[in-house]
Amino acid sequence: MWDQILQFLFTGVTVGATYALVALGFAIIYNASDVVNFAQGEFVMMGAMCAVFLYSGSGLPLPVALLLAVALTIVLGMSFQRFAIARARGASVVSTIIITIGASIFLRGVALLLWGKDILAMPHFSGETPIQLGRATLLPQNLWVMGGTGVMVLAVHYFFHHTTLGKAVIACSCNRTAAHLVGINVGLMMLIAYGLSAFLGAMAGVLVTPITFTSYDAGVMLGLKGFSAAILGGMGNPMGAVAGGLLLGLIESMAAGLISSGYKDAIGFVVLLLVLFLRPSGLFGKASAERV
């Protein structure tokens, strides 16, 4: 029994770590620009697909391929901000959501054209020999996912709270005009926020693809789960989003193992709804007064 629980825990944390990275991406863009970016899952897909093709297509060493893939995705994220989001200045919140949905469809279409419909695999970073803990097993790649997520979350936290640049991004989210008045280059800060989100997405993609495979439409479900995680934790709080991701992953794997694998996603969403009914701004979100 405890072996089982331990195994569910490993699975939950690995899946949850992916959700957490996607959720963090959602939260950063939301905090910087009030936009819910439904193309976040496509950043994950783009990172993973680029990596697979740079590695197997051009024969680059794996680390180089991964770095290049992540860099390409960052450029993509920034161009998305520059050429789509920034152009739609006057658009309402819902209109911007539709723009991001359009972008996600567009990116999926591009990936389909460039790389086809096949499901693709990527080698594990450091072998596939399972690590035994009692009867529970863990792959080295699981450790990569957990560790990578941990490092990135801490780095993002440090960036926003202890660097001038990070604080400037936060300032823009609090009050764009005021930030502009004190001499912050708002446009640049937005670029940084989108670049950072794309970076997190791409990292999630390359870390997890050895375990999960990837395909041109792999981003849809990840985007959806990431959004759910961000809401669960509280959209306005990046660290809340991370916690939400881990929690959602754990709930799903426990539900699959202990209750019903067919209904595990439904159970995840039921928990999410209950949390929202009790805490309308998510677990760690601040309740904000409506501006009249």
């Binding site: 789509a84 739609a88 539709i98 359009g102 972008a103 567009f106």
Partner: peptide
Amino acid sequence: FGAILMSMMI
């Protein structure tokens, strides 16, 4: 389709 959707909204 994605491109049309995006540009319409922009």
